Simulated assay, not measured.
Amino acid sequence: MTAKTGPEIRSQMRRYIEQRLLMKGDGAPLHDDDLLFTSGRLDSLDAVELVMSIETDYGINFADIGFDLTRLDSISAIAALVGQPSAQPA
């Protein structure tokens, strides 16, 4: 697995989240700091899908780092989480 840069992570997460929002009929603009879960745009099923995607795509194990929905509540928060050295597999 190759390391991805912050802009690459943001771009990939933006595409993924925009697809999920479109499946819900939400075509509103999406900005990096927009709240996804606390705003109600995404729900708990989306959180599970997002966690699975992050674990698969980036090798992050939420059982090891702990689950905190605020760390997934925006594209910026997700990029920060994925970019943290402590979140990366050894």
Rank of each mutant, 00 (worst) to 15 (best):
M1C: 01
A3T: 10
K4E: 04
T5S: 10
T5Q: 06
G6R: 11
G6L: 05
I9Q: 01
R10A: 13
S11E: 08
S11T: 10
Q12V: 13
R14D: 13
Y16S: 11
E18M: 09
L22T: 15
L22E: 15
M23K: 12
M23E: 15
K24H: 14
D26N: 15
D26K: 13
G27Q: 11
G27L: 10
P29S: 14
P29D: 11
H31T: 11
H31L: 15
D32F: 02
D34T: 15
L35I: 12
L35C: 10
L36T: 04
L36R: 04
L36C: 00
F37M: 00
F37H: 05
S39A: 04
S39Q: 09
R41Y: 09
D43E: 14
S44I: 12
L45W: 11
A47F: 15
A47E: 13
V48W: 12
E49K: 12
V51A: 11
M52S: 14
S53Q: 11
I54G: 03
I54C: 00
E55H: 06
E55S: 09
D57P: 01
D57Y: 05
D57F: 02
G59C: 12
I60N: 01
I60A: 00
I60F: 07
I60P: 00
N61V: 14
F62C: 05
F62Q: 00
A63F: 10
D64M: 13
I65E: 07
I65C: 06
F67H: 01
F67K: 01
D68C: 03
L69S: 12
T70V: 07
T70A: 06
R71V: 11
R71Q: 14
R71M: 04
L72N: 03
L72D: 05
S76V: 10
S76R: 07
A77T: 03
I78T: 13
A79D: 00
A80V: 01
A80S: 01
L81I: 08
G83V: 08
G83P: 02
Q84P: 05
P85W: 03
P85I: 13
P85Y: 03
S86Q: 11
A87I: 01
A87F: 06
Q88S: 10
A90M: 06
